[in-house]
Amino acid sequence: MARYGMLIDTRSCVGCYACLIACRRQNGLSPELSFIRFEHRERGSYPAVFQEVIPLQCMQCAAAPCVLVCPTEASYFGPDGLVGIDHGKCIGCKYCMVACPYQLRTFNEELGVADKCRFCAIQTLVGGKGCTCVEACLTNARVIGDLDDPNSEIVSLIESKNALPIAGDLTQANIFYVR
């Protein structure tokens, strides 16, 4: 068993939105749908100030509130630490969207269901293409890998760059941020 996760280095991110466009293309999303939300923060103190761009997407939480509250079990824990939505089961009640502490779920009006980052890594399990948001990133701010494999690139980068989940141990998130 693997436990997939991602590292996002906000110090490398330039906020070009290439990942968002790649994600839309890969998942066939309309321009209204975004699985990645960008937040901006002012950092540093005058005169050494800069703007931090934080790309946020489904954190693939091990303690996912969305899975807990979903009445139909459409939100589920998939294989290898991924959180999924079964659109065939989703009734569109939006309880998961309310429960997500990061507000990282969006409503797919076309299908009438909740939607979110599908962590395309799941496709690598069956031999498909991985996350194109990772490939599209100009500055290699995104790294995907197996958090349970001590020899993986992501684990060594998380250690060397001291990457942390965005909100501490709030939901045991599997996305790690360098800030």
């Binding site: 979903c70 009445p71 139909t72 079990e73 459409a74 659109h87 089961k89 009640c93 009438g112 269901v113």
Partner: peptide
């Protein structure tokens, strides 16, 4: 009103049977 809001169930009312699935959900 709840059903009008839950468009996924409007598209396919059979899905409503699934509402009994998750005994941890307050909605269930």
């Amino acid at each position: 009103l709840l059903l009008i809001d839950a468009t996924g169930a409007l598209h396919n009312p059979l899905k409503l049977i699934l509402l009994f699935s998750n005994d941890q959900s307050v909605m269930t």
